[in-house]
């Protein structure tokens, strides 16, 4: 009889092939810009393109703002729901899940309809306004991941007792959030932040329809017009995502007090 182990390994090998082969294919193709030999020509061409640098920088800056705003909204909300409104948790959880079931295209059409130049809040009338709108859109898209990460982080500490301990020592709400709650869920916030970063870097629909020079539309544009460069871009985008995942692991490991039980 063939052992159970063999079948598990076979399934794993199949899975790895399924995911790795396309990637390897893309990587291999991206190196074939010069006829007959492997070269980094496609990467050189991508990195030399000023538009690549501009759009990438734009997306990174947007990602950073998205993370800050997202954390500012999510951490106090998740904390307050856990502390004072536990009955509302399913409702809040449902709301944070909505971006997963409502396609970005619907969201962005809604935005354009609501915030166009003839609306009560003409955000799309200026570049800054559109940037803010895009950033808030990104924050919405990353909400399911950010909220879940922070909520899981809050589960590992005794929120109610720590809050009361801080209150008895004279701390107000701001101090409690900044010095007690946030430092203890920082690892969770960071893991949410890296997922947000990956989402923002790769996002296409919002940026494209709001007509902002983000990395996603640039990738699409390159893909439509060039042969080898899109493959190189895809490899770069994958690397960025993987570096993010690696960073999550690193941060989790380097945190000094994560062994703490309470």
């Amino acid at each position: 009889m063939i052992s159970k182990r063999f079948w598990s390994w076979l399934a794993l090998a199949f899975g790895i092939l399924y995911f790795a082969l396309p990637l390897l294919g893309t990587l291999e193709f991206s190196l074939r810009a010069r006829r007959g030999v492997y070269s980094l020509d496609a990467y050189r061409s991508v990195l030399a393109d000023p538009q690549f640098r501009e759009t990438f920088t734009y997306s990174v800056v947007m990602a950073i703002f998205t993370i800050l705003v997202g954390a500012l909204i999510v951490v106090p909300t998740a904390y307050w729901v856990r502390l004072k409104l536990p009955k509302w948790r399913p409702v809040v959880e449902f709301i944070t899940l909505l971006p997963l079931v409502i396609p970005p295209i619907v969201i962005v059409f809604g935005y354009i309809r609501l915030y166009n130049t003839s609306s009560f809040l003409p955000l799309t009338g200026s570049i800054t306004g559109t940037n803010i709108l895009l950033m808030l859109g990104y924050a919405t898209l990353s909400l399911p991941y950010m909220y879940r990460a922070v909520d899981t982080g809050l589960r590992t500490i005794d929120v109610a007792t720590l809050t009361e301990a801080a209150q008895s020592l004279g701390a107000g709400w701001g101090t409690i959030l900044a010095r007690v709650i946030l430092p203890n869920v920082l690892v969770a916030v960071l893991s949410g932040a890296f997922i947000t970063f990956a989402i923002v870097i790769g996002e296409f629909v919002l940026a494209s329809l709001l007509n902002r020079p983000a990395f996603g539309p640039y990738m699409q544009l390159t893909g439509a017009n060039k042969a080898y460069e899109p493959a190189a871009l895809a490899v770069i985008a994958f690397s960025i995502t993987w570096i993010c995942m690696g960073l999550i692991q690193l941060v989790t490991r380097f945190s000094k007090h994560t062994n703490a039980k309470r």
Partner: peptide, 19 residues
């Protein structure tokens, strides 16, 4: 409010700040 009462409190679950 509790943060203005100047009261020392010790909890069953210690409640030390882990960070």
């Amino acid at each position: 409010p509790s943060n203005q009462r100047n009261i020392g409190m010790v909890f069953q679950a210690y409640a030390l700040f882990p960070n």
